[in-house]
Write a protein that binds this DNA or RNA. Sequence first.
DNA 1: CTAGGTGCAAAAGGTTTGCGGTTAA
DNA 2: TTAACCGCAAACCTTTTGCACCTAG
Lengths: 138, 138
Amino acid sequence: MKLSSEVTERLAASGIRLTRQREEVLGVLLQKRDHPTAVEVFMRSKKHMPTISLATVYNCLEALVESGLVKQVNLDRAPTRFCANLLDHSHFFCEECGSVHDIEIPLQSPWNLPSGYLIKQAEVTFRGKCPACTSKNL
Amino acid sequence: MKLSSEVTERLAASGIRLTRQREEVLGVLLQKRDHPTAVEVFMRSKKHMPTISLATVYNCLEALVESGLVKQVNLDRAPTRFCANLLDHSHFFCEECGSVHDIEIPLQSPWNLPSGYLIKQAEVTFRGKCPACTSKNL
DNA sequence: CTAGGTGCAAAAGGTTTGCGGTTAA
DNA sequence: TTAACCGCAAACCTTTTGCACCTAG
């Protein structure tokens, strides 16, 4: 696939060891940005790499998250979802269809926090109805 | 405990059926606002109500969350945490000591979202160092 | 009276781990 | 060459479920 150069570049730049499995996992996340779960990533990866194991997918995801190439999204008690969108963004969760969308809003950090807190990262999650579901006027 | 009147009032006002176990679980969450996990709530509840079961704690928490009396907080892949703070607030997660703090900032919703999205709820999570850990200048 | 809640134990996911073999650097 | 990674299977931990009994309204 033509993504592979981007995948390889990102991996090389991150400094972590480059393996075929990590390329595959990152490739899956870059190809379809629908915030798949680990199991979904596993199933998609198996199409190109039938020998990959679920444990390896978890390991790869962990390495990718740790290196900053992938973000994890947790919603309620549902399984963790992953995305490879490196732009600063928020997530929108549609209560109707369950889909997760990236919302790229520049958060100009208008936070007036109590003193003493050292903020390294802020994360915003929205819930509601996505455009597709809203237009179905359910 | 003197919280019981508040607990009972809140439960009655919520409309869900009032049981001793739900009172106990809500009481635990109101007494110490450290965002315990389900298992922690279970252990604390057992001190006053030795017969309560973990499954019941989960059931109670679910009912309380659904009725809006309790909020659940998910951080990464760690077990879900619960809090009874009904004021609109955000959460701060200390990467140093692992504690979770409520941050009561009035979010004046400065979100410029793409059109089509119907937002019902926004949730903000911060990560960094809490005052206690910052002052230890680690 | 009865719909809904409880307690128990067992099952069901999701995620992690241990280990022998493999591979990127 | 070797530290790190992979695949497999088993373990782990959180959460859910089925069922018989109980209780709030």
